[in-house]
C-alpha cells in the first residue's frame, strides 16, 4: 500500500516492511530452484539489492499512478498490493498465476493495480511507460508514470528516443535508472561512456535538457526524496526527470541458462563468477539495504528488536503461504493456449 503522504516513523516502518516482503519473496524464489527443482522454468531475475530503490521510489506514488518496470519485476507489484500468492503461482507457471501462466516471471501484469505489464526485451518498456504518460496527459487523469529500467537499458535506442519525446511533450513521467552495475554479465565500466569518463549515469539527462540526479539507491529515504522531487515536477506538468538510483544486484543476473533436462539454479554473482572480484561483492554486501535500514530503524528510530523481528516473521509467513499456494495450484488447461491471442 503506497502512501500519498509517507512521513515520519510510520512511513519508515512501512518502507522497511515492503523491503522485507520483497527480499523474502526473492529469496524464496531462489530457494525454489533447490527445494523444488524443475518447478520454475525459463529465466528468472531477482530484485534483491533493489528493495530500497523500489520502495523509496514508490513511497512517493499516488494511488492511481502507473508503474512500469523491466522484466526484473517481482518487487513492484508486491508493493502495489498484488497478492504474493498469485505472483508466485505465475513464477511457477500455474493456473492461479497473475497472468494465468501465460507470462511467467518476466511478464507480470496487474493493470487493475496500475501495473499494465512488462517487456522482456531490454529497454523497450521505457517506450511503453512513456506511452502511459502520454495517456495521462491526453486524458488529463492527473496520473504520473514511474518508469524503472536498468543501467543496461540506458544504452538502448528506446531510452534515448523515449526520453527525448517525453521532454519535447513534457510528459508526466519519472525515469528511474536502476544502476545495479551489471547489464546481464557485463560490468557497467565496460559499456557505459559516462561511467568510463568518471561521470554518473544521470549525466545522460543533460542530452535532453532535463533534470538528472544520482542518488544512493541503498537508502530508501534518499531515493524517496530524489524521486519525490522528480514526481512533483511531473505532476506540475513540467515534464520528465532522470533519477539514477545506484545500488548493487545481490544475486546473479538470473538462473543459469541450461537446456532440459539439466537442472538450473542461481550461480554466483558475476563479480565472483566472471570477474573473480570477491572483494567488490563483499563490499556491497556490507551495504545491503535491508541490513542497513534495519539497524537504522533500531538505532535512530528506536524500533524494538522484537518489532523488527515481527515484521520479518509476518513477511516470511506470507511468502511461505505463497509458495504452498503456488505448489498446490494446478497447471493451466492446455486447451486454454488459444485464448487471449486477440481481444
Amino acid at each position: 500500500m503506497p502512501k500519498k503522504e509517507c512521513v515520519g516513523n510510520e512511513c519508515l516502518i512501512w518502507m522497511f516492511t515492503q523491503m522485507v516482503r520483497i527480499r523474502e519473496f526473492e529469496e524464496a524464489v531462489k530457494r525454489a530452484f533447490i527445494e523444488h527443482p524443475g518447478v520454475i522454468r525459463g529465466h528468472t531475475h531477482l530484485g534483491d539489492g533493489a528493495e530500497a530503490s523500489i520502495v523509496g521510489a514508490l513511497s512517493t506514488r499516488n494511488s492511481t499512478d502507473v508503474v512500469m518496470p523491466s522484466y526484473r519485476c517481482h518487487g513492484y507489484p508486491i508493493v502495489l498490493g498484488t497478492p504474493m500468492r498469485n505472483i508466485m503461482a505465475e513464477v511457477f507457471g500455474r493456473k492461479d498465476g497473475l497472468c494465468k501462466g501465460f507470462g511467467g516471471s518476466m511478464h507480470l501484469a496487474d493493470p487493475a493495480r496500475y501495473f499494465p505489464g512488462t517487456s522482456g526485451i531490454i529497454g523497450q518498456s521505457i517506450a511503453h511507460a512513456t506511452g502511459a504518460a502520454l495517456s495521462a496527459q491526453v486524458k488529463k487523469t492527473g496520473q504520473i508514470v514511474y518508469c524503472f529500467f536498468g543501467d543496461g537499458a540506458s544504452k538502448q535506442g528506446a531510452f534515448f528516443e523515449s526520453v527525448n519525446m517525453a521532454a519535447v511533450w513534457k510528459l508526466p513521467i519519472v525515469y528511474v535508472l536502476e544502476n545495479n552495475q551489471y547489464q546481464a554479465y557485463t560490468h557497467v565500466g565496460l559499456e557505459d561512456a559516462n561511467c568510463i569518463a568518471g561521470d554518473p549515469l544521470s549525466k545522460k539527462a543533460e542530452a535532453f535538457s532535463i533534470p538528472g540526479v544520482t542518488v544512493d539507491g541503498t537508502d530508501p529515504v534518499k531515493v524517496s526524496e530524489a524521486v519525490g522531487k522528480a514526481a512533483e515536477r511531473a505532476r506540475a506538468g513540467e515534464g520528465p526527470s532522470l533519477v539514477e538510483s545506484k545500488f548493487y544486484r545481490l544475486s546473479a543476473h538470473g538462473n543459469v541458462i541450461t537446456v532440459p533436462p539439466l537442472p538450473t539454479q542461481f550461480p554466483e554473482h558475476e563479480a565472483i563468477a566472471v570477474y573473480g572480484n570477491k572483494a567488490e561483492f563483499q563490499e556491497w554486501q556490507k551495504k545491503d539495504p535491508i541490513v542497513q535500514f534495519r539497524s537504522r530503524l533500531v538505532r535512530e528510530v528506536g524500533l524494538a528488536e522484537d518489532d523488527v523481528k515481527g515484521i520479518e516473521q509476518v513477511a516470511r509467513a506470507e511468502v511461505a503461504d505463497a509458495v504452498q499456494f503456488a505448489l498446490a495450484s494446478p497447471y493451466p488447461d492446455p486447451q486454454q493456449a488459444g485464448n487471449y491471442v486477440y481481444a
Binding site: A127, H128, A133, S162
Partner: peptide, 15 residues
Amino acid sequence: TAETGIAIGAAMTGL
C-alpha cells in the same frame, strides 16, 4: 521505436 512503443503504452492505458 519510441513512436510505436509509446503508442503501445498509450493503447495499454486507454488511448
